[in-house]
Design a protein around this nucleic acid. Structure first.
Lengths: 346, 346
DNA sequence: TTGAAAGCGTTACCAT
DNA sequence: ATGGTAACGCTTTCAA
């Protein structure tokens, strides 16, 4: 269980640990350590399977080559795909990733960030709950490297990588309009997340652009608690009472929930009602019908976030200009938004 | 950006850092530090928002309160759910989690474990690729705390938390038999993962128990590459040529792939062929028809793994008896395995 | 071409 | 009741 240290190598070879450290960090040539000494050290290090103690290195260097990733919930496909993209981009640079799920709870978010901050991570990638602006402001003030993903504060100038939520919602809604619908409802979340608000804005923008009369009750919030029951009621109201012929959902969770409800209610998609969703997930390819959705570039989000973060970490000290990137989404048209009449296939 | 250290507090209060350390670690009373000194220190620490430097602590204590989790792919629902369960159990104990995706690549697995081993994590939870027994044996030999999940080596006595793969496959296959089928094929992976072999064993056991004549070509391997094409061929052969009326899939990925193929081939489930799958995923609830599946207790896997690991870390030094837990699965019966004739709904 | 020593922030031992 | 100092394993001057 004992690990080989730089001292062990130095002792065995009768050289100083300085020499060993230098050689192992490829500074041998620059500092003019003899080829012979270098190769002896290198050889022994390999033989003993020497691995530097990252903790000790971290202490002196003030860097751990570890970054903290704070997400709402790692078990949600959306985040786990981003997580994977982040992990991949980072591992190419020999960085490690610490994950933290905030569960949309600002207290958990704060606690997690504080624990990691104190020198265990070199920086953060955060999908903020947006419920605790202070913690973000504080990081910013302390000049702690971080980048916000998926969600950001429109009024704080931080590094951020988000998608064009408004554009995506606009495209989906316009597609529904193109398919002949003019009674299109929007099912969304009761939240103040800026990203969700932008989706509402995109939806409304599409209706306006096509001069479709709109009434505020076309938009229904589904709360987190009692979601299924509330969804049932909302669907019934929108479809049976208000005569909506198309539904646009703010995220994949809502859509999947609605699909179950619609099946229970014997309402056929897309014959009785057409559907489009924000967030493309694999499930949407195998449902019947398959679901038209706004795809978010998850790998790109992860990649950009890492690039920006690493650059900031490497330039720490210097005041880096904050970068904001907004990535385009892509509308994937499937069966759920087909024009009817539709011939049923199995 | 400068962090408060124990020295800053000691300096400001004109006490030694020993005293500060003692007080901050709640050893003040035991060591008889005066109440007054204690409260002065505590107050200032709070005021300056002192946070101990975990790295320094890690160096001297040889513990980082961080554990490494090595999974095949964090973006796979199966693993991300386990990951979440692990994270939750661990966060209650103030532990952090480092994730690593191995991509079923033994080289990545080895490299990842080696990087983390050298003092950055206190222990591991590993879903091994099973392709590199050495790395596991080495951990065992070094008495490094770890527990294997999902997959294990039947011939090495390590800590492990797995599910009853054979039992799950047996139950699913028997269910299909009960539904009146006696030509049941098994679609599996070309792999030597023990867990997958056990599923095959369970499937065969069910057939034998019911004295159903079986031929080896009822079992088809689908390789990773060219999966869709290979699946098409396998399905065609099994259903059209060999007249199979039911299919049992070794995991959710295969089932989802098959669902797409069957849709393309205009083969109706469950009218033309019945289906059951190992691995329950959310998708299976919203497909049409919904899919009968063997549910694995993912949260329990995570929880048990953490319990065992933490206990081992806390008792490090002592030789702990290795624990193996085998968790039961649960068959969730849905529409895909219904007896025909079936009246189409929706 | 190499080595000695200081220092990173903490804990722990031994004094006083 | 409190302080001095070594130690954890490493990097980095500075000196030789």
């Amino acid at each position: 269980m004992k690990n080989v240290s730089i001292n062990d190598i130095a002792g065995a070879l009768h050289v100083s640990k300085t020499t060993v450290s230098l050689v192992l960090n490829n500074k041998g040539d620059a500092l003019g350590i003899s080829k012979r000494t270098q190769s002896r050290i290198l050889k022994l290090a390999k033989k003993l399977n020497y691995q530097p103690n990252k903790i000790a290195k971290g202490l002196i260097l003030g860097k751990t080559e570890t970054i903290g990733v704070v997400l709402a919930d790692i078990s949600n496909v959306f985040y786990s795909k981003i997580a994977r993209a982040i992990e991949d981009s980072l591992s190419h640079r020999e960085y490690q990733v610490l994950f933290l799920s905030s569960d949309e709870d600002p207290a958990k978010e704060k606690k997690g960030i504080e624990i990691l901050k104190h020198r265990i991570v070199d920086g953060f990638i955060i999908s903020t709950t947006q419920l605790n602006k202070n913690i973000i402001l504080q990081l910013q003030e302390e000049n702690y490297p971080f980048v916000l993903i998926d969600r950001h504060f429109p009024d704080i100038h931080t590094n951020s990588v988000i998608v064009d939520n408004r554009g995506g919602a606009l495209a989906a809604t316009e597609h529904l309009i193109t398919m002949g619908h003019n009674k299109i409802a929007h099912l969304t979340l009761s939240t103040h997340l800026y990203a969700i608000q932008q989706r509402i804005a995109g939806y409304r923008q599409a209706l306006e652009a096509h001069r479709i009369a709109f009434s505020p009750d076309w938009i229904q919030d589904i709360p987190y608690t009692n979601a299924k029951k509330r969804m049932m009621i909302a669907l019934k109201t929108l479809i049976s009472i208000k005569g909506m012929t198309a539904l646009f959902f703010a995220n994949n969770r809502l859509t999947i929930l609605a699909l179950q409800c619609l099946q229970d209610m014997k309402i056929n998609v897309p014959n009785d009602v057409a559907i489009a969703s924000f967030d493309d997930v694999d499930t949407f390819k195998v449902t019947h019908p398959s679901i038209t959705a706004v795809e978010q570039p998850l790998e790109a989000i992860g990649k950009y976030a890492v690039d920006i973060l690493i650059e900031e970490i490497n330039n720490s000290g210097k005041m880096n200009p904050k970068k904001q990137v907004i990535l385009p989404t892509k509308l994937i048209i499937r069966q759920s938004s087909r024009k009817y009449p539709v011939t049923a296939d199995s």
